[in-house]
Design a protein around this nucleic acid. Structure first.
Lengths: 265, 265
DNA sequence: AAGTACACTGTACATCGTACAGAGTAACTG
DNA sequence: CAGTTACTCTGTACGATGTACAGTGTACTT
């Protein structure tokens, strides 16, 4: 039997924001700490948690598991990190910080924007869990800041206003993250139960055919069949990304042209 | 202290797919059932769960809670539904089924597509939890089918191929759902802890100002400030939706024009 | 009247984040 | 040097969750 429950979106940034910021920026108040020397470091904890998440998904990242990975009892982690949410914040910001940022200055804007999309896609491929961490109240750490600065530079000089630049970037990043999340879910479902995509469709097809007559749902049946045939399966995340990215680029083109037209007069 | 853990995306469709389909289509094998009469109905269970989810969010939807709402012991629910995932499937498909579907035939395509977006936006406003339920392996019930059929009709007759129609619809729906999810998360964060958005920023501002010098992140500081000033807060879901929808429409326009151009010759 | 399939109940388990209280250690204070 | 204090690390414990499993009683079929 598979777990069939809601897909949890993990929240970040729960506790004291100031403390969280200090952690993100590694602003350890260098008071000569008294007691025993610390056996670990924040970075070690973050690295261990990230390793677990990369290898086995976010669900496997439990305080118990991370502690075990570090040869320590679970509660020990709480001397490094206020709680699990903050740990996720740190993981995410660290992942942002590690992203390679290719310099595309001088290249045409479509290539620049595509590079941003690809960099984010690569992030979510290396760290699928990152796509499923909620970023309401994002981790305002050095990683996110460097990422934001870098990505804005790809949208600079196109005649967009500051707010428009932010809007466009948000739009693009939401798109890439949504694709990554969908891909991660698709992968999770595939590996989850004993049931492959194929088996699932084979199990559903007969009953579905009986109940889904072409008279009631003519377009749905036709288009669903066409789409299913085009990409091999019910849903092809890679195709959705490729298609969607072209749409986003077209949309930006229209916006830029409009601004140029307005600016030209 | 707030919960700071990952935001769970609930999964659907875990158990036997055939059984799930039977439930979705209410294909109760009408074998003369033997034992005592059932005190409840699937619809009652789904309605109770939906009411809880609407009022208190998906986290409040536990088997214990739904059972209590129905004056029944938790395990009783399992005689109506194989598990929680299937319950979520049923909730979602029922919500799809209830969506009002405005007839926009004859109207210009931008208005038709906008109507689709608005209908989905309204769904997620009435049922915020619906945006957070994962739909890898969506609930292939009558609600989804009716929704799919209806939405395809808005994209019909524009010169798009069948696969393109599906791609466009997927792109649009992913966009709306992502906005709704972000809005739901923003709302959750607001109501979650004792901390309002304002308090959070006020708590963060001093430390952030100290660490975020304009030399290192010139664009980020400038654009971030501009965006924050434009909409009142750090993130304005309503604005992101309005902006993004125009982009999606522009993108569809480009695709349609291209097809017309190709078709014209 | 006997048998059977089913609805419903109660208890129980593993898992999670983390509160809380204790034990030991190193630096500061005198 | 001794005493205090702040800190690290540990062990135990709690409430919550989905649901497996083993009853208990009911209404239909034979």
């Amino acid at each position: 039997m598979r777990e069939n429950s809601p897909v949890p979106t993990e929240r970040t940034s729960a506790g004291d924001p100031a403390r969280t910021l200090q952690l993100l920026w590694r602003d350890a108040s260098p008071d000569r700490r008294r007691g025993p020397r610390r056996g670990l470091s924040i970075d070690a904890v973050v690295a261990a948690a990230t390793a677990v998440a990369d290898a086995e998904g976010l669900d496997a990242v439990t305080m118990r598991r991370v502690a075990q990975e570090l040869g320590v009892v679970p509660m020990t982690l709480y001397t490094y990190v206020p709680g699990k949410s903050e740990l996720l914040d740190l993981m995410l910001d660290a992942a942002y910080a590690r992203m390679p940022r290719t310099d595309t200055s001088g290249q045409p804007w479509r290539r620049r924007v595509t590079a941003i999309a690809e960099e984010n896609k690569a992030l979510f491929e290396r760290h699928p869990w990152a796509a499923t961490v909620s970023t309401a109240r994002p981790p305002l750490g050095p990683g996110l800041m460097a990422k934001y600065e870098h990505e804005l530079s790809a949208l600079d000089g196109l005649g967009l206003g500051d707010v428009e630049m932010d809007d466009c970037l948000t739009h693009l990043l939401m798109f890439v993250q949504t694709c990554a999340r969908a891909a991660a879910e698709a992968r999770a479902v595939r590996n989850d139960g004993a049931m492959s995509d194929q088996q699932w469709w084979e199990a559903n097809a007969p009953l579905l055919a009986r109940v889904l007559d072409e008279k009631s749902y003519p377009r749905a049946v036709r288009v669903g069949a066409a789409a299913g045939a085009a990409h091999g399966s019910a849903y092809d995340p890679e195709h959705a990304y490729a298609f969607g990215l072209q749409r986003v680029l077209d949309a930006f083109a229209a916006l830029i042209d409009r601004n140029e037209g307005a600016g030209a007069h």
